[in-house]
Amino acid sequence: MLAAQALNALDANDSQLLEAHLEDCADCRSQLSDLQNTAAYLAFAAIVAKPLEPAADVRARILQVVRSGSPGSNVIPLDQKRPRTWTSAQAWGAIAAGFVFVVLGASLFVLWQQNRATRIELNRVKQQVQEAQTERDKLQEAFALMTAPGTRMTELAGTSAMPGAHATLAFDKNGRAILMAKGLPAPPEGKAYQLWFIAGGRPMPGKVFVTDASGAGMLNDQIPAEALNAAVFAVTLEPKGGVQQPTGAMYLKSS
């Protein structure tokens, strides 16, 4: 990569990686510097026939810019006109032009702001539509699952820790499952509810979900094959990423 970097030929990704490495590798930095010296010699390969001279006024232009003390402007016109005094018509013209410029600038700014507000609003609406679609997809999926022949339903009742909670778990013979819960308060920050499949006394972790302000929540999950028959389902409160073994209070449990 060092050779390519010396030629500035690294693709952007590689170049970023290398830059990061160079920060703390003095050895590679010195190798790179060495290869850059070699690469610089390639400039001599540019001159294939006779060397060319730039026009003589390039030198003069450079020195003129440097002397004028404004090397910030890169290029100066070749024909520097002598200073002129303004006629009053030109002055009025300039003032009018300045005024138009200011008005245009202000209008542009207003338009820019409006455009920005519109875009923000548009993004918000888009997001809402997307959320509504996701919600609808979930409901359709739940409907399809619950109306499919052979789908089983299990009730989960609130435990003594959350007596007002209630949930229904619908699942088909392949283990595709949907949990619909009510009466579970929205979990505290950093926490989420997690579904468990308990078979033979061994809990297997399901996915996590949250509930909204009304206490309702929904979860699509896949029941492991060994838990499909004769399983107990439960919901506990866990860290929001989910855990492998239940640690928190149990709020819902099937009989």
């Binding site: 400039a43 001599f44 540019a46 001159i47 060397p51 060319l52 001279e53 730039p54 030198r59």
Partner: peptide, 20 residues
Amino acid sequence: ALASLYDRYRVILFGLLMRI
């Protein structure tokens, strides 16, 4: 000094720029 540097390298640099 800038002028000297220019005189020293204008040909090789101009050659490079022309080639590119």
